[in-house]
């Protein structure tokens, strides 16, 4: 299988986009806040943006190599690009949209994406989920060697999104194409990709498997992005070999990690437990505060207590009879607080 290589160095409005990636037959997601340069990466790969310096290579096939003056136009790069808002041709039927990419596989793709019954419809007359399937079918009709998805789920409502995410994941596992996804949503990235790269201001902060990003975030941004509570403070040596962190939030927390000076603590919501009174257990960090918000999420609930967000089961929330405004104690263990040096 051919590897797909990508190196870019390009000045954007307020920062430089500089990154290098190598993909096998896998899905890599680039996540980051909007304006981090994610879409520019896809445009550079597709040939819609010419970077100041760069290399885009599929096996021995060079699509872009600024050092050799190679820059193939988009139509000569074997990419399937699915645009954020899908960019379906409004004047063409669903069938004609798919056939635009290539006629030979159009019928098969219409079937496969369950859009055969919409073949005669215009894109304006079908739902968001259907439009996304048309866009995927159209991109695949070209028989691409590399698949590029720009925010594939962001144009969908929450309900459709969950379905499409599962479908898309199955599709990507089946296709076995080097696939590059950009998204601002870590959950989407973690669900769809084998590896996730966190892109901020044009640079990759960390590239790793989704669970590794959660377990060992490289810095506080990555931690916050993966959903952790990020608490700032000043670290100093504490009792029993622990590190004491005097948090800006007004209390002192202990962590098993070593560190000194300005630091951040990352605490995942599922490592925070909630009780009416401070429990006498292995957790040594306790925050007593009123519940600022209580949001049910299916069988779980997210509880905001002071500077912390805890994720507990809906059942526990019921058992404790938690209500917004109740004063409760949120606890987490010293081993559940990761120290990240600023």
């Amino acid at each position: 299988m051919e590897t797909f290589e990508l190196e870019l160095d390009h000045g954007l409005r307020s920062f430089r986009l500089a990154l290098a990636l190598e993909l096998g037959s896998e899905t890599v997601a680039l996540v980051g806040p909007s304006g981090a340069g994610k879409s520019s990466v896809l445009r550079a790969v597709a040939g819609l943006l010419r970077p100041e310096r760069g290399l885009v290579r599929l096996g021995q096939e060079r699509w872009l190599d600024t050092s050799r003056g190679i820059d193939l136009p988009p139509e000569r790069r074997r990419v399937g690009l699915v645009f954020q808002e899908y960019a379906l041709f409004p004047h063409l039927s669903v069938r004609a949209n798919v056939e635009f990419g290539g006629r030979s596989r159009a019928a098969e793709l219409l079937d496969r994406f369950r859009i055969g019954h919409l073949a005669g419809a215009r894109p304006g007359a079908i739902s968001g989920g259907e439009r996304q399937r048309v866009a995927l079918a159209r991109a695949l009709a070209r028989d691409p060697a590399v698949l590029l998805l720009d925010e594939p789920l962001s144009a969908l409502d929450a309900y459709t999104r969950a379905h499409v995410r599962t479908e898309l994941r199955e599709l990507l596992q089946e296709l076995l194409l080097p696939t590059l996804i950009v998204t601002h949503d870590f959950d989407d990235a973690a669900a769809l990709a084998d590896r996730v790269g966190v892109l901020v201001d044009g640079s990759l902060l960390q590239l790793a498997g989704p669970s590794e990003l959660v377990a060992a975030p490289a810095d506080s941004f990555v931690a916050g992005f993966t959903g952790a509570n990020v608490l700032r403070g000043i670290a100093s040596a504490g009792p029993d070999g622990l590190t004491a962190v005097a948090l800006d939030a007004g209390f002192t927390a202990y962590t098993a990690d070593a560190g000194e000076g300005g630091v951040t603590l990352a605490v995942y919501p599922w490592e925070v437990s909630v009780a009416r009174e401070a429990p006498d257990d292995s957790a040594i960090n306790h925050v007593r505060a009123p519940i600022a918000s209580l949001v049910p999420l299916g069988n779980r609930a997210r509880v905001r207590i002071g500077p912390l967000t805890a994720e507990i089961t809906a059942r526990s929330a019921d058992r404790l009879g938690l209500r917004e405004g109740d004063v409760v104690v949120a606890s987490f263990k010293a081993t559940g607080a990761r120290l990240l040096q600023l």
Partner: peptide, 27 residues
Amino acid sequence: VDPDLVAASRTLGAGPGRTFARVALPL
């Protein structure tokens, strides 16, 4: 004409001429 539609046409294998005739002109 939405520039994304023109870009989509190019990434789908249509050169600039075909993109003009099949996307820009009808729209």
